[in-house]
């Protein structure tokens, strides 16, 4: 999942590859298979969401979106995302810094622990927090006596979402920072920069594309998390329903078109973030290309 900006091959490079290309038949066969695969698994699901959303006309679509319950679900999802993403970005940066810039015992254990939420079923994740904070859990009575609500309220949803999404940023940054080494940071320090300056002006710019990709994945998962949140939410309409839970609810209320209408907003969000990412990558590649060009021109 490393986000290394794609480099466009120049025309000259392309020409020189003639001897190493497949026959046109094989080439187009491969392209056809790849296109078919992406048609079934990428394009059709995407188109289907919107087709279903508009199946009953635009009015139904619009009514579904402006319904107070939809709006409150959106508000909750945005709130959860706004809390989780900055925290996870912070964690990702800290963890990547500690792991890639220093040697210590138990590093691979730490890396594995960071990866854990990645393959732990979200249901198990939710369950773990119920075991801790549920009324029958370890802290349940204590919290109930103090009127502190964690499970079936916003904090529980935030915790479950945090758990499910925290590896994304760290996972993107670690390989990139590992590959970059720490020579640049050391030079900066030698030149008299303090730690924060080094981090802010040297490290951060060099990992910004990975950070961006990790953040996008993290946002996407925060917005879309279903299993873990479903266990800890309590499904109170208009209060603890996130957008994906609301989609399920609408679907169960015989409002298929409305469910897909709300789902289409999620899909649209997905498309927008993907578009943004592609555009940033493209800009980055262009800048890099310009830089290389300039470098080439300077050299005789």
């Amino acid at each position: 999942m490393a986000a290394i900006p794609k480099r466009q091959l120049t025309a000259g490079q392309r020409k020189s590859q003639r001897g190493t290309e497949e026959s046109p038949f094989v080439k187009w066969l491969l392209i056809t298979v790849a296109l078919l695969f992406s048609l079934v698994f990428l394009l059709l699901p995407l188109v289907n969401v919107f087709a279903q959303a508009f199946a009953k006309g635009f009015t139904v679509y619009w009514d579904a979106l402006k319904h107070p319950n939809t709006l409150s679900a959106m508000k909750l999802t945005l709130l959860v995302t706004a809390i989780c993403v900055p925290l996870n970005v912070l964690f990702g940066l800290a963890a990547a810094w500690a792991i890639t810039k220093f040697e210590f015992r138990g590093k691979s254990l730490l890396v594995t622990l960071i990866d854990l939420p990645f393959s732990v079923s979200p249901v198990v994740a939710g369950l773990m927090f119920v075991v801790l904070f549920g009324l029958q859990g370890y802290f349940g009575e204590w919290l109930a006596d103090r009127e502190i609500r964690i499970i079936f309220a916003v904090p529980g949803i935030v915790l479950a979402t945090l758990f499910v999404t925290f590896p994304f940023v760290a996972r993107e940054l670690i390989p990139i920072m590992q590959a970059a080494g720490s020579d640049q940071e050391q030079s900066a320090l030698t030149l008299g920069a303090n730690g924060w300056q080094t981090f802010w002006y040297v490290t951060l710019p060099s990992v910004k594309m990975g950070l961006l990709y990790g953040t996008i994945l993290c946002i996407a998962r925060c917005v879309g998390e279903f299993g873990a949140v479903s266990v800890v939410s309590g499904h109170i309409t208009g209060k603890t329903d996130t957008v994906p839970l609301h989609v399920e609810k609408l679907y169960n209320e015989y409002q298929g078109a409305a469910a897909f209408a709300v789902a289409s907003i999620l899909a649209l969000g997905a498309l927008l973030t993907l578009g943004l990412k592609t555009w940033l990558e493209w800009r980055e590649a262009k800048l890099e290309g310009l830089g290389q060009q300039a470098e080439a021109e300077v050299r005789p």
């Binding site: 119920v130 904070f133 549920g134 009324l135 029958q136 859990g137 349940g140 109930a144 609500r149 499970i151 079936f152 309590g234 499904h235 109170i236 309409t237 609810k249 169960n252």
Partner: peptide, 16 residues
């Protein structure tokens, strides 16, 4: 709050 009857009861037991 709506859901399967058993699931709903479990949520109440767990503190909903």
């Amino acid at each position: 709050s709506h859901g399967g009857s058993g699931k709903q009861a479990r949520s109440v037991i767990d503190g909903l």
